[in-house]
Every structure is written in C-alpha cells, then in structure tokens.
C-alpha cells in the first residue's frame, strides 16, 4: 500500500514536469522577437492563413529551434544523471571524461584553421568529443575502478584546453569572438535537415541509456554490490560511456557549449523524486528539456531584437536558483 502511494507521487511528479514542458514549448513557439498573435497561430494550425512572413518565422526559424532545445536539454539532463550515478559523484557531468574539452578543441580547430561554417565546426566538434571520450576511456581501462577513468578524463581535459590555447594565440579578433560565442552556446543553428537525423539519433541513444536504470541503482550501493547483483562492471562502464558520448556529442556539435543543465537538473530531480533511477532518468530527460526550452525563451525575449547566448542564460538563472534550493534544503 505504501509502495503504491509512493509510486503515485512519482507518477504525479513526472506528469507535472511533462505538463510544464508542454506549456513551456507552447510559450516558446508563440513568443519571440517577431510578434505573432496567438489567435492567428491557432487559426493557422487549424488550417487558416497567416501573414507569409509570420508563417515562415514559426515554421522555419522558431519551431526547429524549439525542437533542438528539447532534444539538447533532454540529452544533457539524461547524460548528467547517468554520469552522476556512474561516478557516484554529484559533481559529475559529461565534461568529466573530456567530452566538452574534445568538442571545444574540435570547434576551435575548425574556426581558426578552416573557413568555419556550422557544418565544419559541428563536424569537428563531434569528432573531437567522441575522440576525447574514447581516449579517456581507453586510458582509464588500465585501472579497475572509476578513478582511472576520472584521472584520464582530467588529463585529456588539460591537454585539450592547452591545445586550444595554442590555437587561440594564433586566432584573429573575429575568430576569437566567434569562439567566445561558440562556448556560450546557441540554438540558432537549428534547421529541419539537422533535426531530421538528430531527433531519431537522440531518441535511440536515450532509450538505450534509460534501459540501464537497474544497473545504475545497483551502482549506488557500490562496485562490489553491483558485481554481486550480476552486473559486469567494466562492460557496463564501457557501454554507458559510449552511449553518453553518442548522445551528447552531436548536440554539443550543433549548439556549442551549454553548461549547467547536465549538472543541476539531475540534482533537482533527485531532491524532488528520490534516488531511484527508474524515475530519475526520465525525469532528468524531461527536466533538461524543460530547462533548456525556458532558457532559450529568455534568451530570445530578454532584450529583442538582440539575442543572448543560451549558455549564459542557463548559468545566470540556474546558478542562483540552485544555491537557493540548496539553502532551503538544508533548512528543512
């Protein structure tokens, strides 16, 4: 009986996040620098007509952008939750195994040494993220526990950032500014052809990640306990790291660096719904999507016609909010 009510409250929590996500998505689609009247939009959705430019703005600029935000947020939230469970460390996020450093290095190489452009920068960032994670994992395998992987990640991060420094010294002013903005992230690169392969990709890798909730729960008990519960730890670690890299690398490649979501959303979810990964994983997924959708909405409507970098918004709002939440939690 107790179990049932427990389940229900988690169901409710998940449902609440999902409802919030739907509302946020609607708001993000209807609001932006270009004024669109809600009734016009509803009429248009029901088959009516709308101003040609407004239709184009919604269909080709705003909608792809909102969808990219949902996918990226979900990918970041989910992989953050998995990383924190895998390393049994609340500070873990995909950057820990060199993923962000690899992506940034790839982007810098593309911006400074080639002509740039979204396709090249994204491609290089993707290869960089996967390469760095693979390298950290291979080096870390020499050690039987997580410490090896962690140290290898730190080494890869250091090497990545110094290589980046070397390139930055040679960059000109315009390239430096491009780079600064890339590191602060943006969803403006969204278009339908990117989404056409990103959406199925993220959906598949996310589902594969979520299937491991039992193993992640076992990991909470410790390495030995995980083994005795019948999980092959090295194999599990390899599989999870690969899946995380495959989930996050393409989103980072398209959006640039968006901090904070992967770190904080799983925390919020655990504070609210408890540590059972059966709930933490889907809730982090939805919560990440919600957070990024809201952040992008703020980025677009805060000071039109200008746009703020989204990474800036996530940390600017998320940081103080998180501090407040922790303080409140301590008092309770």
């Amino acid at each position: 009986m107790l179990r049932l009510t427990n389940l229900n409250s988690r169901h409710r929590g998940l449902l609440l996040i999902a409802t919030g996500l739907c509302l946020a998505t609607l708001m993000a689609i209807t609001q932006g620098a270009y004024p669109i009247i809600l009734m016009d939009l509803i009429g248009w959705l029901l088959g009516g007509s709308m101003d040609q430019v407004a239709e184009n703005v919604v269909l080709n600029i705003r909608l792809p952008r909102v969808l990219l935000g949902l996918l990226t947020g979900a990918a970041l939230g989910l992989s953050g939750a998995v990383m924190q469970a895998l390393f049994r460390n609340p500070l873990a996020e995909p950057g820990l195994v060199g993923l962000s450093a690899g992506a940034s290095l790839g982007a810098v190489i593309a911006i400074v040494l080639t002509s740039g452009g979204l396709l090249l920068v994204g491609g290089f960032a993707f290869i960089g993220a996967l390469g760095a994670t693979f390298l950290a994992y291979t080096l870390g395998q020499r050690s039987s526990n997580n410490a090896g992987l962690l140290l290898a990640g730190i080494a890869i991060n250091t090497i990545g950032f110094s290589a980046m420094g070397l390139l930055i010294v040679q960059a000109n002013d315009a390239e430096l500014r491009d780079l600064t903005f890339w590191n602060m992230g943006s969803l403006a690169g969204a278009n339908w052809s990117i989404l056409a392969w990103l959406a199925p990709w993220i959906t598949v890798t996310s589902c594969l990640l979520m299937r491991h909730w039992r193993a992640l729960n076992a990991l909470l008990l410790g390495d030995h306990e995980t083994f005795h519960l019948g999980f092959d730890l090295p194999q599990l670690r390899g599989r999870l790291i690969t899946l995380i890299a495959l989930t996050v690398a393409p989103t980072v490649a398209v959006t640039g660096g968006i901090g904070f979501v992967g770190l904080v959303i799983p925390h919020l979810v655990r504070l609210w719904l408890g540590a059972d990964h059966r709930w933490v994983l889907p809730a982090s997924c939805l919560g990440g999507a919600l957070a990024l959708t809201l952040a992008d909405w703020v980025a677009r409507v805060a000071m039109p016609p200008m746009e703020l970098p989204i990474g800036l918004v996530t940390s600017l709002i998320g940081g103080p909010f998180f501090v407040w939440l922790l303080m409140r939690d301590k008092q309770a």
Partner: peptide
C-alpha cells in the same frame, strides 16, 4: 536605433522583427 547585436552572430528572428 534598435540594435540586433553582434553582426557576426545575427539573430534571424530579431532582424525580421524590425520588419
């Protein structure tokens, strides 16, 4: 005049909103 931000990082919708 209304300012659309850095010209190497143009917000398409922001520019369009000035019609």
């Amino acid at each position: 005049l209304p300012n659309v931000g850095y010209y190497r990082r143009l917000p398409a919708e922001g520019v369009a909103s000035l019609r």
